[in-house]
Design a protein around this nucleic acid. Sequence first.
DNA 1: GTCTATACTTCGATAGAC
DNA 2: GTCTATCGAAGTATAGAC
Lengths: 210, 210
Amino acid sequence: MPRAARVSQDQILAAAAAEFAERGFAGARVDRIARRARVNKAMLYYHFTSKQQLYRTLLRRSFTLASTRLRAIADGNAAPADKVRDAIAAFASLIREHAFLPSMMLREVADAGVHLDRETLAALAGVPRAFAAIVAEGVASGAFRDVDPLSAYLTIIAPVIFFHASAPIRQQLGAMHLMSGTAAADFVDHVQESVQRAFAPDRPLRRSTR
Amino acid sequence: MPRAARVSQDQILAAAAAEFAERGFAGARVDRIARRARVNKAMLYYHFTSKQQLYRTLLRRSFTLASTRLRAIADGNAAPADKVRDAIAAFASLIREHAFLPSMMLREVADAGVHLDRETLAALAGVPRAFAAIVAEGVASGAFRDVDPLSAYLTIIAPVIFFHASAPIRQQLGAMHLMSGTAAADFVDHVQESVQRAFAPDRPLRRSTR
DNA sequence: GTCTATACTTCGATAGAC
DNA sequence: GTCTATCGAAGTATAGAC
């Protein structure tokens, strides 16, 4: 692919990510995406079939990346508690790299996935699947109490996503003196610590040799 | 207010709640709201000034109700751990009564609160404020370890909202054999249990007399 | 209070020149 | 590959009869 085309495509994807995160699929305006990408609308439609395809491309890439990284952690040989710690850190890292993800995820969840095709939905499902493998391993080995893997996933991913996506509204409430602030790093620490305690078995085992 | 008007207004509010929850503010169509309410569009604009006012009215009512109930729990004389339990149960109850809330909250958080006026934002802020009072009391009395009240709130409200709002997409993933299911009651139990463990002090105190 | 009809605007997408 | 101009559909909101 020629360099110029690649540049345009990346500009469009970055602009679309920002627009979709801020406004959602229905609220996003193709004109605004083109303007933000500094290309005209016809150029956008030259590279991408439709608003929907642009949207799907963005999410599919992120889901695949998240899934790959999480699977690598799950397949490692660390203790389950450490894998969970690493998984939470991995979510936080991914969000730092793909700042549009939290907002887009909240919106797509609320939209029941209607904008996603089969392939993108499958990529999405790979994330909880990989995380659940970690939890199941920990439960089986006695490192965790008997927690439901999917519930465990949701109690972790929801706060992390929600915290990041809610930064703007929390900032606004802060400016109105209606809410105090919490730093992102402190929040991730809180989740890390809370999850370790929440998953710990009633009579903690001595860490087994591996 | 005449009975007929009241009926129309309630029909419109109920229809709007469903439409906004399914599609979000930008995706919601006034025509669809009117059709769902079985009134025509002019009737809707007779009772409500605009799509936006309808939206705000819905959320302000829910926020105020949530805030009132939570404040009642916070002001009670139960032990902090029990107040937290009651608060989580109260969130679950409110959601059962206002099924549109989880989805609308996710969307509004992603939208940074742009559709809300000052009054509605203040009502929203009352919810974490009331919950934080419970946590602060528990931390002060030694019933909880030193958790940040706002972080504590987010780690509870996010999973509860996310779980409910994600029911449709999880069901779809289940139908595609990409994810297994979890019952709502089981999930609330998981949150209850996890939070008690996450908040517990390192050396649990004997329950103090009051 | 309730309706039909429609004004006015904005959007996604495309045509066609270069 | 990139542009300007524009089409047709769909949206919010209102006018005005009853």
